[in-house]
Amino acid sequence: MILFDSVTKTYPKATRPALAEVSLEVERGEFVFIVGTSGSGKSTMLRLAIREERATSGSVLVAGRELRALPDRKVPLLRREIGTVFQDFRLLPGKTVFQNVAFALQVIGKSRSIIRQTVPETLRVVGLDGKEKRYPHELSGGEQQRVAIARAIVNKPAILLADEPTGNLDPATSREIVRLLDRINRSGTTVVMATHDHEIVNEFRKRVIELDEGKLVRDQVGGDYGTTTSAIPVIRLDEAGEPGQAGDPGETGEVR
């Protein structure tokens, strides 16, 4: 479904490549965590997969398309097969839950009857039925992320990319969100989730791809969060946004 073949990405004026000679393959229907410190290249991988960026060298294949050769006008078609979720939800504040989800279909020209049918269905899947008429600011963080997920999957994409979807959420809510992603994965969607959340990674035991300074350092099925991020623990704790976890014995045991 997603194939990186010795992909290197160097941003203009950068001293080292954001991604260096990364090769990996994600099969249809897999659930993959991408872990690593900030700046390790997780987001770059996802940005390459939706052709937000082009690889400097190597080839990226997504849903059967070679992205380096993909002309600009075909990029929208690629993106219709990929759902994307971010840490900051990216909802439109002036639109209701229903309108936010419907927006994704309206702008790709779906008919009103399809929208009227699909949007409520999708909202049911993410557990938001009954909240169609709410505005984003009236919802909790977890609910807002559900809206974002609904918007990402409403067009039934083959791939769902999530860039730290739980970064702004408390541990319990994070777990619910990943459970939702897991459920979506079970219905056949390939899910790739970049995350800092070691608890989540350790709990769900999926395939883990670890990046360090742009290099792939680990690709392990059923792996844990790993130790790389322990180099400067303070940073990781800040990023996790949960300073309380510093005292977590299991966690520090792993780290040190």
């Binding site: 600009d72 929208p76 078609l77 993106r79 219709r80 990216r90 702008v107 790709i108 918007r151 067009n155």
Partner: peptide, 17 residues
């Protein structure tokens, strides 16, 4: 930019945006 960003992400064509 938020709106157009979302449109691009969900695969709206250039013309639509």
């Amino acid at each position: 930019r938020r709106e157009t960003g979302i449109m691009r992400l969900v695969g709206a064509s250039n013309g639509t945006i």
